[in-house]
Design a protein around this nucleic acid. Structure first.
Length: 482
RNA sequence: CGAGGUGUAGCGCAGUUUGGUAGCGCGUUUGGUUCGGGACCAAAAGGUCGCAGGUUCAAAUCCUGUCACCUCGACCA
């Protein structure tokens, strides 16, 4: 089907329409926009310069906020001795099926095999137990930017790959209250970055026991809705209580001189966020990047670049905009037609395009195109650098508003299983739940949906469980998930 | 790990049923003309047909094995 359309239109770079095959649309977009390529290793991706530039933007937004809230960056080794990994039982059980092992070094078989980190709780714990001694040492709030590896059964670039990049924050605190405060603070930073920088609305809340992180006392998440109505867990923040501290013996002497276990948190977001941006905003022409994290915010495309003065003027405008602090690019590739470039930069999701040709030079203006609405307007050249920042903000806000409206239309309050099944076919179901694992399992079985999270703002929409009909305990979202 | 699918030029594919000189489109290179929504003409380069066995005078094609990747499920950021 998609192939027939492609052939008919004769477009080499044609993208499969979203409503024909959303999964294929996603694959088309990420490959053709040159974000990633498949690696010659099972389940791994190569993040290409344009994709990595987006990751660097996301890193910048997060890292700035981490540091502003008192966190420091560190780096832990990628290899974890098996004995160390085994100490927290629930954690091991959760990760064991997807750990990759190093069993040989050079020509020698290792005495103890080494896990390639699937996450670094264990090694952080080992170091914290060494580093902490007094209540004066607390809190310790460390973060690391690194790669991790999980031997996933089936993989998709950005969404689930064997190796991926992320940040993992690990903190230890004197009290449960402090740990909980930290857990919430970091979740809120994730929410804020998602909403203000990625223009992506998210639902924040607490995970059910079934869905929580292996070894956590409580897991909180932010959940985003993709354009096929499926949920993507876009970030998590965990409160471990003293679970790991007890397993790894992380104790300090409190003010009374008594040995006390620390309270620990961890929190992470990954390159999956790039997948979230793509599936939240993208359209039939390809990527659509929010201006705040777009590596290129505005691209200048010369028209009839060989004509006198065109390229020179483009160069001047480029210098002016760059000096004004905009991330701008001049597309001076000489063998490509303007039309090709228009499509190329739309595919790559650049928020604003500036066209400058001979006609514009005569009139002292340019054509400004915005990616989110496809609107074109003529702008006087001397006003350009003054109007662009506001235009970029408009685009940023419009993209959030569109995504928010899309999501609102696809969240349905449900009171019966029939309603739930219908709601999760292309959307989220908002339901009351008794709190029992059995009902989650049954909903997974019958509707293919999992619980996403329980919002902090618990305004009941009924008093009986959507599944079993018994007394409801919690308001919770269900959805099919990536 | 279950079910399905695909491996042929950088990319996308045809050719496999019925064994007989390796094809097409795009891209690439060179020269020229173009340039306000995916330009055109001409010439050129580019492939041990995933890998290993086997059958045959002859294998991309038939047989056996094997590896990899993709999609959908189950599991997970």
């Amino acid at each position: 089907m998609a192939k027939e359309i492609e052939k008919k239109q004769g477009f080499v770079e044609h993208i499969t329409p979203r409503d024909v095959d959303f999964a294929q649309w996603y694959t088309d977009v990420i490959l053709k926009s040159e974000l990633v390529d498949y690696a010659p290793v099972r389940g791994c991706m190569v993040i290409r310069p344009y994709g990595y530039a987006i990751w660097e933007r996301i890193q910048h937004e997060l890292d700035t906020r981490f540091k502003a809230t008192g966190h420091e960056n560190v780096y832990m080794p990628m290899l974890i001795p098996e004995s160390l990994l085994l100490k927290e039982a629930e954690h091991v059980e959760g990760f064991a099926p997807e750990v990759a092992w190093v069993t040989q070094g050079g020509n020698e078989v290792l005495q103890e095999r080494l896990a390639i980190r699937p996450t670094s709780e264990t090694i952080f714990c080992a170091m914290y137990s060494k580093w902490v001694g007094s209540w004066r040492d607390l809190p310790m709030k460390y973060n690391q930017w690194c790669n991790v590896m999980r031997w996933e059964k089936s993989t998709r670039p950005f969404l689930r790959t064997s190796e991926f990049l992320w940040q993992e924050g690990h903190t230890i605190h004197a009290t449960q209250e402090e740990a909980q405060e930290e857990t919430m603070r970091m979740l809120d930073i994730y929410r804020e970055v998602a909403q203000t920088e990625l223009a992506m609305p998210v639902l924040v809340g607490r995970k059910s026991e079934k869905e929580k992180f292996a070894g956590a006392r409580a897991t909180y998440s932010m959940e985003a809705m993709m354009q096929d109505g499926k949920a993507l867990q876009a970030g998590t923040s965990h409160n471990f209580g003293t679970n790991f501290a007890e397993a790894y013996n992380i104790q300090y002497l409190n003010k009374e001189g008594k040995l006390t276990y620390v309270h620990e948190t961890s929190w992470g977001v990954s390159t999956r966020l790039i997948g979230a941006i793509i599936m939240t905003h993208g359209d039939e022409r390809g990527l659509k990047l929010p201006p705040h994290i777009a590596p290129i915010q505005a691209v200048i495309v010369p028209v009839a670049a060989h004509k006198a003065g065109v390229l020179e003027k483009c160069g001047e405008i480029f210098a002016e905009l760059a000096a004004a602090g905009l991330r701008v690019k001049l597309d001076d590739r000489d063998t490509l037609s303007p039309g090709f470039k228009f499509n190329d930069w739309e595919l790559k999701g650049v928020p604003v395009r500036i066209e400058i040709g001979p006609r514009d030079l005569e009139n002292g203006q340019c054509v400004v195109f915005r990616r989110d609405t496809y609107d074109k307007q003529s702008v006087a050249l001397q006003e350009l650098s003054a109007m662009l920042p506001q235009l970029l903000e408009d685009i940023q806000h419009n993209m959030y508003a569109l995504a928010d409206q899309f999501r609102k239309e696809r969240i349905t309050e449900v009171r019966t299983m029939e309603e739930l099944k219908k709601a999760v076919d292309g959307g989220f179901a908002k339901a009351m739940w008794c709190g029992e694992r059995a009902c989650e399992d049954k909903i997974k079985e019958e509707a293919g949906a999992s619980s996403r999270n329980m919002p902090f703002d618990q305004q009941p929409i009924g008093d009986t469980c959507v599944c079993c009909g018994k007394k409801a305990e919690k308001l919770i979202y269900f959805a099919k998930a990536y």
